[in-house]
Nucleic acid binder design. Structure first.
Length: 554
RNA sequence: GCGCCCAUGGCUCAGUUGGAUAGAGCGACGGACUACGGAUCCGUAGGUCGGGGGUUCGAAUCCCUCUGGGCGCACCA
């Protein structure tokens, strides 16, 4: 519907240009007219700032420009009641209610199409997130990354991208050795050997659990193996056990991955070597002091970074180069990496890799998700990873539930610090925003149950009966839904959908308190139920994209 | 010391290519249906958008600077 209005305005610009009233630079085929729904009724139903956008190009005051444009609009659709120029150049459109009735009719006729604006055009997107080392359980910080990534993936898919959700498993390198050694030492201790446990070992109780399980399954047989072999075996076993647990936690959190990519496989396939050799040939990697360095300073890093140490051991960065090369080669239109904000020092390293492989920067987005501080009321919950006194993600989910946990993570922009209050998340009251939107959905369901119960036989809806301001406002809000999804896909900010849904629920709750949806008047009831049905469909669609359940009753 | 992120009512936060009088929720106070679910709704109070400078028709939004907080600065991952 808005397209028609947009066309009218563009035609006005074009016609003004043709008549020589404004300079020809003002019109181009890529020119886009954005409409907003103004906060205040007196500014109309839709408004556009096109005159402000064109003012610098046309070198003309916006007000004057607005006048010229609307005078030269060949024809308005007849749903337009009147047009006003306000302020210093806003073009405000006042529409007849039937414009909004048409919008609602469209939503009801093709709800699926309406909720799936096809802007992705089948392009491939890879979104890599969580990717926690398999050395310990997931914590709340991982949880936030997980939910942001998962909701983005759902939304990108919804708007027509082909999405691969990928988890990169750091199953190679020193941390793995330390893991294996930690398990080995706990295993020895559990069998009564008096061996010291190092500072840098993994202190968590889960290491002991793995050791105990090993004893149950294999007794002390591992002690008789050569130590190196034993540690290598335990590394593999421990990583498997922990990864298994991570997958279970993610499943519980309603998160599924399409691809689990092993770091080790990059070494086994010699992809790491090949990538390094390639970059050496291209001059991006050079040798100095016996080590190999990547020229990350070329993209603004403070200094170059080591890829292979002088002792011949590759660093983590080496496999990361090969990994990103691999992703580039899989021909995604877009790569998204989601990291905890504590990794921001690595952004330049990945940018360097992109540059080195001639991948344009817009194709690679790195989202830094700020860390989470877990609170219980006003007091922070102690979170020492080293001592493993932290609360795990699964404990949080168990305490507050999946819906509340996901909702809280999506309630703020991901680049702001988040205090996650366990007490608040648990509360089933108006303090807790989680239930507000779900309640709107449940309430809508209950209305339709009521229709069933009363066995009402209603006529086909005549939407022109929806004349109240609140009804028009509700339709206006519904009409924005696809635009919100597009905005989320462009900005990669899923919290916008969360806020939209809360606002939609607010409008519905207000409407519900003001008017009877089911009344003696069958015609009116039918029209209002149609509006209710569209509202329900969009709340349900949106909640699903956030990975939050849509209860029919609460 | 260097780099990245953040700063908006008492609290927690929105604010879409820079746009009209900066918006919600919570908390506080006062109210609402004999009717489709009161986990709801209505009203009141609360702001020099951290300070200062700049860019322009116009800045919470862009630039500079200062202050305060978070994080990162390894031949660790």
């Amino acid at each position: 519907m808005k397209k028609i209005l947009s066309k009218s305005i563009l035609a006005g610009v074009k016609s003004s240009v043709e008549k020589g009233l404004i300079t020809s630079e003002a019109y181009s085929s890529s020119l886009k007219v954005y409409f907003e729904i103004p906060k205040e009724k007196k500014f109309g139903d839709l408004t556009t700032n096109i005159a402000f956008v064109l003012a610098p190009i046309a070198k003309m005051p916006p007000r004057k420009l607005a006048e010229i444009i609307i005078e030269n609009i060949p024809a308005w659709p007849n749903d337009v009641d009147r047009v006003e120029i306000a302020g210093s150049g806003f073009i405000n459109l006042f529409l007849k209610p039937r414009f909004w009735h048409k919008v609602l009719r469209q939503i009801l006729a093709q709800p699926k199409e309406f909720c799936s604006p096809a802007v992705g055009r089948g392009r491939k997107v890879n979104i890599e997130f969580v990717s926690a080392n398999p050395t310990g359980p997931l914590h709340v910080g991982h949880g936030r990354c997980a939910v942001v990534g998962d909701s983005l993936a759902r939304i990108l898919e919804k708007v027509g991208y082909r999405v691969t959700r990928e988890y990169y498993i750091n199953d190679a390198g020193r941390q793995m050795d330390i893991l294996g050694r930690s398990v080995f030492l706990r295993y020895c201790q559990e069998l009564g050997r008096d061996v010291p446990f190092p500072e840098d070992g993994y202190q968590g109780e889960y290491i002991r659990d793995i050791a105990r399980d090993l004893i149950k399954e294999r007794g002390d047989s591992i002690l008789s193996m050569p130590e190196k072999e034993a540690i290598s075996l335990l590394t593999k076993i421990a990583a498997d056990v922990i990864l298994h647990q991570i997958k279970a936690d993610l499943t519980l959190f309603r998160i599924q991955f399409d691809q689990w990519f092993s770091e080790k496989s990059l070494y086994e396939s010699r992809a790491v070597e090949r990538a390094i050799r390639y970059l050496q040939k291209k001059g991006w990697i050079y040798e100095q002091d016996g080590a190999l360095w990547m020229k990350t300073s070329e993209v603004g890093d403070e200094k170059d970074r080591v890829v292979v140490r002088s002792n011949g051991e590759p660093t983590y960065y080496a496999s990361d180069i090969a990994y990103h090369r691999n992703k580039f080669q899989r021909r995604y239109a877009r790569l998204i990496d989601i990291w905890g904000a504590d990794h921001h020092g690595y952004v330049n390293r990945i940018r360097a890799v992109a540059r080195a492989f001639s991948v344009s920067e817009e194709r690679v987005s790195i989202l830094l998700v700020q860390l989470v501080r877990l609170m219980r009321g006003d007091t922070p919950v102690n979170m020492s990873t080293r001592k493993a006194t932290f609360t795990t993600l699964s404990e949080v989910i168990e305490e507050v539930g999946v819906d509340a946990a996901r909702f809280f993570f999506l309630l703020r922009r991901f680049d702001t610090h988040l205090d996650f209050d366990l007490e608040l998340a648990k509360k089933q009251s108006s303090e807790n925003p989680v239930y507000y939107t779900q309640y709107a959905h449940a309430r809508l369901c209950s209305i339709f149950r009521e229709v069933e119960k009363r066995q009402l036989h209603l006529p086909d809806p005549d939407l022109s009966l929806l004349r109240n301001q609140e009804e028009i406002q509700l339709i206006q809000k519904l009409s924005l839904y696809p635009q919100v999804l597009i905005e989320v896909a462009e900005s990669l900010e899923p919290h916008r959908l969360t806020f939209y849904l809360i606002e939609l629920a607010t409008l519905f709750h207000k409407y519900y308190n003001l008017y009877r949806i089911i009344s003696e008047d069958g015609d009116l009831s039918s029209a209002r139920l149609a509006l209710a049905s569209a509202t329900q469909a969009i709340i349900a669609d949106g909640l699903t994209l956030l990975g939050i359940s849509t209860p029919a009753a609460m």
